[in-house]
Design a protein around this nucleic acid. Structure first.
Length: 434
RNA sequence: GUGGCCUUAGCUCAAUCGGCAGAGCAGCGGAUUGUGGUUCCGCAGGUUACGGGUUCGAUUCCCGUAGGCCACCCCA
């Protein structure tokens, strides 16, 4: 027998970690609703062309990291697992004629994304994102609203010190000119550029700006900044986004090296960083405006903006916080039904089933072990109560034992559910336990 | 995709110079009749990631593969 394991770059979310994800999903869903975003669910795979066009054919995400699904002979389509949510959502916007809905259309989705990258801590081939998209609003106010929404999410999740990095990358009117300026600036230094950067000089020159190569630091510091060369509409838009952020009390850092090197990305670009984590994988989430994307995928020209926040990385950042090692109590049963007669599993199962029907989280000890072991197991499950079935059942009674208090009382089977409901309530409010 | 470090029980880790692979935790059972998280005793759990090589003998040394981690790359 070979021993199987989860594919490279994927992992099983065991109950404790799944609970941490569930908590983030709950916060995301609550916040999205509060801000007026409705949930959408798109397929986890699409026609590969949706990503090739929607994400950009010359990006790493598509060129190197796309999970392509081998086509079946009887079907001509070529599919790929979604590497990010925006392209699929915009495809759905167009397909379902959402331009006839009241604009902007505000959508949210949380789910797994797939990229065939080399795995590393905080970098997985299947990872989860909380995504927000507002399609049909040119901004600038909504840009600030969305950034504030991201900050609010991190704050509720337990990360207060997330930094906002902000930039404007211009639009179709001013970016081409900027790129020419940039190439003209780097060209005389082409010989001194690291090989990788030299290669990118003509293909995707804006990428040089976020290079971490120390050899680039000096050159980049003096490089022309797009923020100085924005066209008038972009300049006004950027200034307005900043005004709105300041009105909301959001602190941010202008980061000229923050780049989205894709044609349809426009104007506002932002990322969320957790400070103190040097090196890679410190980007918790990011987003930006994509005023060209709807048209690129075949719709009418429509502005849009959104973000994707990596759930995996939030969980990691949370775990790194000292003292965050609180254990999840969820999943503990309120009551465990045990019995003096190890063989009498049918009675225990029946009593537990009736309690569940009454809405109580109960389990029966279905093992054939002696009472002491059953109690021990219940206590280790952190159950609040045990119901002990014994001879008193002949009179219609059971023993109800409060494990925390150590007290015990004789209770009529008919009253058991009611007693447990009120007992659980006093446990929750009576506190002491946490 | 490139380079480096690592991989022993479910988990965290031992094993001297190359000489019979161990502990703690977790699990299960028991400690004179139906009362718990402690304690004590016991049981189970391993092709030492996988495949080769060197050697009388490999967890240990060498090579390859897989997986993890770190840096690059990319990004979430």
């Amino acid at each position: 027998m070979p021993t199987y394991r989860a594919p490279r770059g994927t992992r099983d979310l065991l109950p404790d970690e799944r609970a941490a994800f569930r908590r983030l999903e709950t916060i995301a869903s609550m916040l999205a609703r509060r801000y007026g975003y409705r949930e959408i669910e798109t397929p986890m795979f699409e026609d590969a062309a949706v990503f090739e066009r929607g994400v950009g054919a010359v990006t790493d995400v598509v060129e190197k990291e796309l999970f392509r699904i081998a086509r079946r002979t009887e079907e001509g389509d070529s599919w790929a697992l979604r590497p990010e949510p925006t392209a699929g959502i915009v495809r759905a916007y167009i397909e379902h004629g959402m331009q006839t809905w009241p604009q902007p259309v505000k959508l949210t989705m949380t789910g797994p994304m797939f990229r065939h990258d080399r795995p590393q801590a905080g970098r997985f081939r299947q990872f989860w994102q909380f995504d927000i998209e507002a399609i049909g609003d040119p901004g600038p106010a909504i840009d600030a609203e969305i950034i504030e929404l991201g900050r609010a999410f991190y704050r509720l999740a337990g990360l207060d010190d997330v930094e906002v990095l902000l930039n404007s990358i211009g639009d179709a009117a001013c970016r081409p000119a900027y790129i020419k300026t940039l190439i003209a600036y780097f060209e005389p230094h082409a010989a001194e550029l690291p090989a990788l950067e030299r290669e990118r000089l003509h293909k995707n020159p804006m990428r040089l700006l976020d290079s971490k190569d120390p050899a680039m630091a000096e050159l980049n510091a003096a490089a022309p900044r797009i923020s100085d060369l924005l066209c008038e509409p972009c300049r006004i838009h950027f200034a307005a986004v900043r005004e709105h952020l300041e009105a909301l009390g959001i602190t941010y850092r202008i980061e000229p090296g923050l780049v989205r090197g894709l044609d349809y990305y426009t104007r506002t670009a932002f990322e969320f960083f957790v400070p103190g984590r040097e090196g890679g994988q410190q980007a918790l989430g990011g987003g930006g405006r994509y005023d060209g994307l709807v048209e690129l995928l075949g719709g009418h020209p429509t502005p849009g903006i959104g973000f994707g926040l990596g759930l995996d990385r939030i969980v990691i950042a949370l775990e790194a916080r000292a003292g965050e090692a609180r254990q999840e109590l969820e999943g503990a049963p309120v009551a465990v039904v045990v019995g003096a007669d190890p063989a009498a599993t049918a009675v225990r199962l029946k009593v537990a089933t009736d309690l569940r029907a009454a809405g109580i989280a109960a389990r029966a000890d279905l093992g054939r072990r002696k009472l002491g072991k059953q109690l021990e197991s219940a206590a280790r499950d952190r159950a609040h109560f045990v119901v002990i079935i014994g001879d008193e059942l002949a009179d219609g009674n059971v023993q109800l034992k409060d494990l925390d208090a150590g007290s015990q009382q004789l209770v009529a089977l008919a009253d058991l559910a009611r007693k447990l409901v009120s007992g659980e309530r006093s446990h929750r409010h009576g506190g002491g336990d946490a």
